[in-house]
Nucleic acid binder design. Structure first.
Lengths: 221, 221
DNA sequence: TAGATTGTTAATCGATTAACAATC
DNA sequence: TAGATTGTTAATCGATTAACAATC
């Protein structure tokens, strides 16, 4: 389901065509913290608090935000709810986006049951597995495990923009091939496999161990 | 168990005391790709191939590496196995590091069963849960679910450097408090909760949805 | 040799930071 | 008002890139 263009409020007449990679990445991180702060009932947040949670310098945060308008109130901070909406507009991700999940094992079920995607407007509309014994099984009320053969149909009918791979590493490339064949151009890879895809497809690989190594380096030195 | 200082080969006389955040982060990412390439039996890799997998510019990669020595062979590329060892030395993470995992639910079990940490020298030495029905249950051969009361003892005896939180979001702060009380200073948070910790403790929050939003921005524009 | 790829330079661009006036 | 925090400037630092000689 798609409702066409999301209503675009005029954020700022001088906003650039396309954000730089750095700005887009940081705005996404602010959004995560703000979304959670909103849930916790926090009404305002200062750039310093945002800095504590995101590890981004507070001046940098104020600078990033002031590039799009005056969202803050001096002496008070930013209104959490309103800032969430502004950043979503800037990132042009105000709408709902449909994603398909591959793998109904422990990781797949954990993802399906998590609010981590739903919080950001991602709806898991299909769950696939190759294991015949899992097909038809119900996971988290709304989802039924489907055979991978249904993929082309689902991509067509449900406007899937992202495929999330949560299968064993050995099976990841096969799923990626199916996704590419089905026309999906963003793949989120939860396995450690290196996926071979055509240049127009973007692969994001979750790498908690890499993050840990990074954290550890600063701990050890 | 700890074997003291890892054997430090002399990487380069002029190597700086401490890597910049950017360099350390990129080296960690190279390591992930190299580790996997090694597993797949690949013997050499070019800076261009590394660039394709890490989304880091190939010149940047050559520059990062050449700062520590001449690891490549012109016309050929880098020896995968040797480069892995060199980067591990640079990051001073050649040894084994013990981590404790909290939450024996679907996500916790998925993490415990994954090679994603083991590949990078992280050993999960303890698995905790608060659910009395899960205590004593065996997960993946080597691990038995323990009560959270054992935490102080485990931290002391097993030299835990990182605590990984994979419990429901509502329970995350409680676990974080226990970890802080136990003296653990690196926390890896798989929940969407914002954790309150003292300044000397580092929290890394896994945020797949943020990564997706970021990818999506470039897809939509 | 011919082709490929590293190591390195030089030039540019964006990120980062401290500082502080403006103002809620 | 007094205190707090934004918005913005100016100066610095590191990241990024193209280009190419060196060399395997």
């Amino acid at each position: 389901m798609s409702f066409g263009e999301p209503p675009e409020g005029s954020i700022d007449e001088t906003s650039p065509e396309r954000l730089s990679l750095g700005v887009a990445g940081r705005l996404s991180r602010y959004l995560q913290v703000l979304t959670q702060a909103n849930k916790m009932g926090k009404e305002t947040i200062s750039s310093q608090e945002l800095a504590d949670y995101t590890h981004v310098n507070s001046t940098q945060i104020r600078r990033d935000l002031s590039g799009f308008g005056r969202f803050g109130k001096r002496g008070v901070g930013y209104n959490v709810d309103s800032l969430v909406r502004q950043i979503r507009k800037i990132l042009r991700t105000s709408g709902q986006h449909n994603i398909a999940l591959f793998g109904a094992g422990r990781l797949g079920q954990a993802i399906a049951g998590s609010e981590i995607f739903a919080d950001h407007g991602f709806r898991i509309v299909a769950l696939f597995d190759t294991d015949p014994r899992k097909i038809g099984k119900r996971v988290n009320e709304a989802l039924v495990v489907r055979p991978i053969e249904d993929l082309p149909q689902v991509v067509r009918e449900d406007d899937i923009v992202v495929g999330v791979i949560a299968v064993p590493a050995e099976a990841a490339q096969g799923v990626a091939d199916d996704l590419v064949a089905g026309g999906v151009t963003i793949i989120f890879n939860y396995t450690e496999a290196l996926l071979q895809v055509p240049p127009e497809v973007t692969v994001h690989t979750a790498s908690p161990a890499v993050d840990l190594l990074y954290a550890l380096y600063f701990y050890l030195s």
